[in-house]
Deep mutational scan, measured.
Amino acid sequence: MQNSHSGVNQLGGVFVNGRPLPDSTRQKIVELAHSGARPCDISRILQVSNGCVSKILGRYYETGSIRPRAIGGSKPRVATPEVVSKIAQYKRECPSIFAWEIRDRLLSEGVCTNDNIPSVSSINRVLRNLASEKQQMGADGMYDKLRMLNGQTGSWGTRPGWYPGTSVPGQPTQDGCQQQEGGGENTNSISSNGEDSDEAQMRLQLKRKLQRNRTSFTQEQIEALEKEFERTHYPDVFARERLAAKIDLPEARIQVWFSNRRAKWRREEKLRNQRRQASNTPSHIPISSSFSTSVYQPIPQPTTPVSSFTSGSMLGRTDTALTNTYSALPPMPSFTMANNLPMQPPVPSQTSSYSCMLPTSPSVNGRSYDTYTPPHMQTHMNSQPMGTSGTTSTGLISPGVSVPVQVPGSEPDMSQYWPRLQ
């Protein structure tokens, strides 16, 4: 039975679970980093996980050691009161100082060594604690504590007292930064006198190289990059290397530039699409467009005044059976039934097929058609009795279509119309 579990990581490298990497692998990681390889490249070359490479390099940059820390136990506290007071002093002298600059000053002034120097995250935590204590304490208590930490007896009751030896409130920041720059020169002199001055200088240079600022491109470089971006948004590694040799930039910087440029292009394309949609959409909808001609068919113009009344309900007709019959029939052209047409008796099958359309009241044959006459024609229609054979009435077949029909004066039988409509 094995005491430890061995495995293979996602890159194909072998590791022992819970145990640190061998010293030979750690040394190779540092050597590759000094030669300029990126952590992701080191991870692929040595088949070590990216997190492990970053952790080893980060500890090497901070402490200069590649040895693993002790497994188990607690780390001794490195942010001692003396170190905290120095950090507060540096922050007062130059409020814009960075944590890694404070760390360098602690090393250069001999406050800490490589073994007990606090990390950048520890210094940031100390600065946050100082800021929170400043908010919790009152103004007087804060000034007393700062005077105690600074070891001075001057008056701290006013704002300019934060910067000793100065009279203009805006000047101390520059003086403090100048003092810090002077301390940086002392850093070089002190570290050069040490035993491991060369190694420390190499480590600091490598650290500065990794902690780079934003790349500033010249106009020629920007023009070359934009020209390549117009050709393709995704250049391959050969195109990037050719462009890197042409404009004297690292291939990694060119790759990052193209990634950022593609993101910018997507944002601009989104804005262009929004403007295009806004320009195509009308600002207001016309009133006429809300009524579609496919839904509402136009009603033909009436030929006679009587045809303006298109349904039985508008003429005072309360018989719903006839109203439904007229509205359900398709529109037909106007025609006239003459008196000489043969009077065919209704076929029983045809009569039964339209039995649902006729009223059940037996008085329908005896009703006159003056009910369908509009009010303004009552006088004219009353002067001509319906009993004469020459009287013409208008029957409504569908809305908007008038059918003048000659009705025999002897017997106005409704059943004569249905064979004609089939």
Score class of each variant (00 low, 15 high):
39 P>G: 12
35 S>C: 13
108 S>A: 11
34 H>D: 07
65 S>W: 02
124 N>M: 06
45 I>W: 08
132 S>V: 11
139 A>C: 11
15 F>Q: 04
119 S>Y: 02
93 E>Y: 07
79 A>N: 14
81 P>K: 11
15 F>R: 05
117 I>M: 08
44 R>T: 05
145 K>V: 12
97 I>F: 13
72 G>Q: 04
125 R>M: 02
21 L>H: 05
44 R>F: 05
80 T>R: 07
112 C>G: 04
22 P>N: 04
123 I>M: 04
123 I>G: 04
53 V>T: 00
42 I>G: 00
8 V>H: 07
137 M>V: 11
65 S>G: 05
120 V>M: 09
13 G>D: 01
91 K>C: 00
65 S>H: 06
88 A>V: 10
17 N>S: 15
117 I>H: 12
123 I>F: 06
57 L>I: 07
105 R>P: 01
80 T>Q: 03
24 S>V: 10
15 F>P: 02
32 L>Y: 08
68 P>S: 03
108 S>M: 12
117 I>L: 15
30 V>M: 05
87 I>K: 02
44 R>P: 02
60 Y>I: 00
136 Q>K: 12
18 G>Q: 02
10 Q>M: 08
76 P>N: 05
8 V>M: 10
23 D>E: 09
4 S>F: 09
83 V>P: 02
65 S>D: 09
66 I>G: 00
103 R>I: 06
110 G>I: 12
74 S>A: 08
74 S>R: 14
84 V>Q: 07
73 G>Y: 02
37 A>Q: 13
66 I>Y: 15
106 L>H: 01
73 G>N: 05
54 S>M: 03
50 N>R: 12
65 S>T: 08
16 V>M: 15
24 S>E: 11
31 E>C: 07
117 I>N: 15
119 S>D: 00
141 G>H: 11
45 I>E: 09
2 Q>M: 13
85 S>N: 12
99 A>D: 02
18 G>Y: 00
132 S>C: 12
148 M>K: 13
33 A>E: 00
27 Q>L: 14
16 V>G: 03
109 E>C: 11
85 S>M: 10
49 S>A: 00
75 K>D: 01
47 Q>P: 00
61 Y>D: 06
53 V>L: 00
43 S>L: 02
145 K>L: 10
33 A>W: 08
41 D>M: 07
23 D>W: 08
6 S>R: 14
68 P>H: 03
149 L>C: 15
48 V>E: 04
9 N>D: 03
53 V>D: 00
34 H>T: 14
58 G>A: 15
17 N>W: 15
3 N>A: 14
70 A>H: 09
111 V>S: 09
16 V>P: 02
148 M>N: 14
39 P>H: 09
106 L>G: 00
47 Q>K: 15
8 V>Q: 04
55 K>S: 06
14 V>A: 10
5 H>F: 08
71 I>E: 02
145 K>G: 13
146 L>S: 13
113 T>C: 13
13 G>M: 01
133 E>Y: 10
144 D>H: 11
4 S>K: 12
86 K>S: 09
78 V>Q: 02
110 G>Y: 09
3 N>C: 09
117 I>F: 13
40 C>A: 09
117 I>A: 15
7 G>S: 15
38 R>F: 03
59 R>G: 03
53 V>G: 03
107 L>R: 15
58 G>V: 08
34 H>N: 14
72 G>Y: 04
12 G>Y: 03
35 S>P: 01
100 W>K: 12
20 P>T: 01
41 D>I: 06
97 I>D: 08
56 I>S: 05
87 I>R: 01
48 V>K: 00
136 Q>Y: 10
143 Y>K: 11
129 N>S: 06
70 A>Q: 12
71 I>F: 07
47 Q>W: 01
125 R>T: 00
94 C>R: 15
105 R>E: 08
82 E>M: 12
59 R>C: 00
107 L>M: 14
64 G>C: 00
18 G>M: 01
96 S>P: 08
147 R>E: 14
59 R>N: 05
39 P>R: 10
145 K>D: 13
73 G>V: 05
48 V>A: 04
51 G>V: 00
63 T>V: 03
98 F>N: 04
107 L>F: 12
74 S>V: 03
44 R>V: 05
56 I>H: 05
14 V>I: 10
40 C>W: 01
25 T>N: 05
89 Q>L: 09
28 K>Q: 10
90 Y>N: 06
33 A>D: 05
150 N>W: 07
25 T>Y: 06
39 P>F: 04
85 S>C: 10
17 N>P: 15
34 H>Y: 11
21 L>R: 00
141 G>R: 12
150 N>D: 14
132 S>P: 09
98 F>S: 05
62 E>F: 03
101 E>N: 09
127 L>M: 04
66 I>A: 02
59 R>M: 03
85 S>F: 09
144 D>W: 09
117 I>T: 15
139 A>K: 13
59 R>V: 08
64 G>A: 04
147 R>V: 13
63 T>G: 02
115 D>P: 14
15 F>A: 02
24 S>I: 12
29 I>C: 04
9 N>C: 01
128 R>T: 04
62 E>Y: 05
18 G>L: 01
72 G>V: 04
145 K>M: 13
19 R>D: 03
47 Q>N: 00
91 K>G: 15
72 G>W: 00
143 Y>M: 13
4 S>Y: 12
84 V>E: 03
47 Q>C: 15
76 P>V: 08
51 G>P: 02
80 T>E: 00
50 N>S: 15
39 P>M: 07
17 N>R: 15
54 S>W: 05
48 V>I: 11
103 R>H: 07
141 G>D: 15
36 G>C: 04
60 Y>S: 02
10 Q>L: 07
140 D>W: 08
135 Q>L: 11
102 I>T: 04
87 I>S: 05
34 H>E: 14
45 I>Q: 13
116 N>S: 08
127 L>I: 13
133 E>D: 11
79 A>H: 01
78 V>F: 03
147 R>H: 14
104 D>L: 14
39 P>Y: 07
146 L>I: 13
14 V>L: 09
85 S>Y: 10
62 E>S: 14
145 K>H: 14
149 L>N: 09
135 Q>N: 14
49 S>H: 00
68 P>A: 09
22 P>E: 05
63 T>E: 08
115 D>M: 12
101 E>C: 08
126 V>M: 08
108 S>C: 09
110 G>V: 10
117 I>V: 15
56 I>M: 00
146 L>M: 14
79 A>C: 15
36 G>W: 01
149 L>F: 11
34 H>P: 02
30 V>P: 02
29 I>L: 05
90 Y>R: 04
142 M>H: 14
74 S>G: 09
142 M>I: 11
19 R>E: 03
115 D>F: 11
13 G>L: 02
31 E>F: 06
4 S>L: 11
15 F>Y: 13
106 L>S: 00
10 Q>E: 06
92 R>W: 13
75 K>R: 10
91 K>L: 04
129 N>H: 13
65 S>A: 06
48 V>M: 01
7 G>T: 12
93 E>K: 09
38 R>T: 04
134 K>C: 11
129 N>L: 08
2 Q>D: 10
64 G>S: 04
49 S>L: 01
150 N>R: 09
148 M>S: 09
22 P>A: 05
43 S>D: 01
122 S>A: 00
42 I>W: 01
140 D>C: 08
39 P>Q: 15
17 N>G: 03
20 P>E: 03
89 Q>I: 13
111 V>A: 10
132 S>I: 10
99 A>T: 06
52 C>W: 00
34 H>G: 11
14 V>T: 13
32 L>A: 06
52 C>R: 01
47 Q>G: 05
33 A>R: 14
98 F>I: 07
9 N>F: 01
67 R>L: 09
92 R>D: 14
64 G>P: 03
